[in-house]
Design a protein around this nucleic acid. Structure first.
Length: 457
RNA sequence: GUGAGUAUAGCUCAGUCGGUUAGAGCAUCAGAUUGUGGUUCUGAGGGUCGUGGGUUCGAGUCCCAUUAUUCACCCCA
């Protein structure tokens, strides 16, 4: 066997220490805000039964599921007639029973149904875990990536929508990313489709309108026509396509079009309610009604939320919405949920591109003690432990090598301080303390160290 | 699923019209400097030019196939 070049599957990544520190910073901010609002952590397995996953994400989603081949003799029970290309779908069902999770919402719904007797409703949970999609990778799109979900299940109140939006605003403002929070409502979209007499065309309509900025009104109308809408319907859609102004102005324009639709009016009412609840809070980011939001249309039934980086080419950083009956298919009907998901990897990409990570994410070790050999060892070990006890991340270099090399090590690891204890220092019961960024070195007493090191940032 | 690009040192990339022994920067290692890093100087190691075939006296370079990878569409965090 020849030596093979090591590699990892496309769309997956290794995370080196510097990247992990930055990623953990993002997770830390998100977790902190979630917990501040009373969300509790759960985890679910990387793999789920395919029966749990299939049919929840539409036809496209089913294709993007990673399926796990059954262990052992996976062909037992398969007859040769199944082993044809035409039968691949049927075959796949026989040789694969498990799949990697595609998102965190469906496993959460499964979890809620399975644990319904242990859960107090409304149940507020958060979950920071990787998900997998067998997509073609490209910029900002991976086959393995982390979602950070917060959901409330078992409460119909719009306060939840408002809270999720406020949390999103806090998270992005804490991370220093300028974003636009976009909201929409499935009921408004249904209302539009109802008014023009094409309830089946919601997706076609939103996809076409979404291209307005790129291709202009005329082309959008052409596209609507090619997607099977008649002239009268397109005419009725014009006020929707040309929607503009403040959120209130937009709502008024929509209201005129949807006056005949019960569903549509309900949707408008919901959006207004959410906006009014948020108006009590001072948001750092802009919030904007956008009817082209049609994400997750397969299961969202009310509010739809999406967060995009202001002036960025990357896709959305966060998305969510309300789903009235997600647990219904698992045998627990009538429970409504609303949630939001943050894409940690895209947030990372945007922050890296804009240089938004704080300096402190670069290093975790605060001070390195230089190794001078056996005589100094005990003093160093004792001092190192004292510093750790004071909350200072400290390491002692394990080998007695040239101290130049030990400095290079500190430099590469971006450790801000180095402590040198040699024969002279041992006798005097002092240390040489060197600041690696200024290059300034001075003599210090043991008891001064923790204060100097913890004051410095 | 559709389309386009790329593949040469650990990394980023040069390599002319097809022509002798394939180069640079960065990184690594060693030394200048056995109690001081990041800056400087000197030197060293490191290559099946993705893989397989073809054209040719001769291929990193041209042609075909294949694999990997990147970007875009669809869709999505």
């Amino acid at each position: 066997m020849s030596i093979q070049k090591p590699s990892i599957p496309k769309g997956t990544r290794d995370f080196s220490p510097a990247e992990m520190n930055r990623r953990n910073y993002i997770f830390g901010v998100i977790r902190h805000i979630f917990e501040q609002h009373g969300y509790m952590p759960i985890e679910t397995p990387a793999m789920e039964n395919l029966t749990t996953l299939l049919g929840k994400y539409g036809e496209e989603g089913d294709k993007l599921l990673f399926r796990i081949l059954n262990s052992g003799d996976f062909l037992s029970g398969v007859d040769s007639a199944d082993l044809t290309i035409a039968n691949h779908q049927k075959l796949s069902g026989k040789i694969s029973e498990k799949g990697l999770r595609y998102d965190l919402t469906v496993p959460f719904a499964r979890y809620v149904v399975q644990h319904r007797n242990e859960i107090t409703f409304p149940f507020k949970r958060y979950q920071l875990q990787p998900v997998w999609r067998a997509d073609r990778p490209q910029k900002g799109r991976y086959r393995e990536f982390y979602q950070c979900d917060a959901d409330v299940i078992g409460s119909d109140s719009m306060l939840n929508e408002a809270e999720l939006i406020i949390m999103a605003d806090k998270i992005f403002s804490k991370l220093d990313i300028n974003v636009v929070i976009k909201i929409n409502n499935r009921k408004i979209l249904s209302g539009i489709a109802e008014i023009i007499g094409h309830p089946d065309k919601i997706i076609d309509i939103t996809v076409a309108i979404d291209k307005l900025d790129k291709i202009g009104v005329d082309k959008v109308n052409e596209e609507l026509e090619s997607r099977g809408l008649d002239k009268t319907s397109i005419e009725k859609l014009q006020p929707i396509i040309n929607l503009s102004g403040s959120n209130t102005e937009k709502l008024n324009q929509i209201r005129k079009v949807l006056s005949e639709s019960a569903d549509g009016n309900k949707g408008i009412e919901e959006v207004e309610k959410i906006l009014s609840l948020i108006s009590e809070t001072k948001l750092s980011n802009q919030i904007e009604i956008d009817l082209t939001l049609a994400r997750g249309l397969n299961y969202y039934t009310g509010a739809i939320i999406e967060v995009k980086a202001a002036d960025a080419g990357i896709g959305s950083l966060s998305g969510g919405g309300r789903y009235d009956n997600l647990t219904g298919i698992f045998g627990l009907p009538g429970i409504s949920g609303v949630g939001i998901s943050f894409g940690a990897d895209r947030i990372y990409d945007v922050m890296l591109e804009r240089n938004l990570f704080p300096e402190s994410t670069a290093a975790s070790t605060k001070v390195l003690l230089v190794n001078f050999g056996d005589k100094e060892e005990m003093v160093c070990l004792k001092l190192a432990d004292e510093l750790r006890a004071k909350g200072i991340n400290t390491e002692y270099f394990p080998d007695n090598i040239k101290i130049g090399k030990q400095f290079t090590y500190a430099d590469n690891k971006q450790i801000p301080w180095v402590i040198i204890i040699g024969e002279t220092e041992m006798t005097n019961k002092t240390v040489q303390l060197k600041n690696m960024s200024t290059g300034v070195q001075s003599t210090a007493q043991y008891h001064e160290l923790s204060e100097i090191l913890s004051n410095d940032l």
